[in-house]
Simulated scan of single mutants.
Amino acid sequence: MNPLVSDLLAHIATGSSDLNESVLESETVWTGRFLKVQRDRVGLPDGKEASREFIRHPGAVVIVPLLEDGRYLVERQYRHAVDRVMIEFPAGKLDPGEDGLACARRELIEETGFDAMEWAYAGVMHNCIGYSDEHIDIWFARRLCFKGQHLEEGELLHVHGATLEDLLECVRQGELTDAKTLSCLLWMQNLDGRGWTLPWKQVTVT
């Protein structure tokens, strides 16, 4: 391993208490259907104080579904906040107390109609650390079996098959800009001949 990388990981593992902030006061500014806006007054390491406003999010999952022919299932869906149709992998938020794999299976069936006989957890990503505590668990799915799509009311999307090369070209052209999907592409590239591995496990499909 590169010595600079080893040094960085060592610092992360041992903690960086000289950078930590302490919460002095906290208030919930606004509560929505599943998001909360919070404002904290914090103490800085240099002894000063600052205000932090951020969004509390329940967490989510993203799924990378692998087809038998080597392509991946992706979606095209209009996203109101950015006023455009986005290319992305299936994803959805965690329900209270919901297991990550259970959420991934539920969202994959709802959005694409497929369940999978094998699943692998690839880790977590934080997509908006400047203003939200949202975390997204990354799951890979293979040996897909079609069960029937069950979109939520008001949820409209198109499902397509695409190769890794297709998706990378979409990134190069500026068509694919979704953060969670870009993180998945990093995994996909490194699984494709660079030695990264996934802990695949079988599940029962009924």
Rank of each mutant, 00 (worst) to 15 (best):
R71V: 03
E88A: 06
R71G: 05
I55N: 02
G70S: 15
R79V: 15
G97P: 08
E75F: 00
R79S: 07
I55E: 08
D95G: 05
L73N: 05
H57G: 04
I87C: 00
L44D: 01
R52I: 09
V61T: 07
I87N: 01
D95A: 13
V85A: 07
V64T: 05
R71A: 06
G100W: 02
A81F: 14
A60F: 00
Y72S: 14
A91Y: 03
E53M: 15
A102I: 05
F89Q: 02
H80Y: 12
E68K: 15
L66N: 07
V61H: 00
F54C: 00
L67Q: 12
P45D: 09
V61N: 05
E98D: 04
F89S: 00
P45Y: 10
A81C: 10
L44C: 13
F89N: 00
H57F: 10
D69F: 13
I87R: 04
I87H: 03
A102N: 13
A60D: 03
L66Y: 10
P58T: 08
H57Y: 11
E68D: 15
D95S: 09
P58H: 10
R52K: 14
V82N: 11
G47D: 02
G92H: 03
I63S: 07
L73D: 05
G97C: 04
R52L: 11
V82S: 13
G70F: 15
V61S: 02
I63P: 11
Q77T: 09
H57C: 05
M86S: 11
E88H: 12
R84I: 01
D99A: 12
R71P: 01
R71S: 13
H57E: 08
R76N: 06
G92V: 06
H80Q: 12
I87A: 04
G97K: 09
Y72D: 03
P90R: 09
A50R: 15
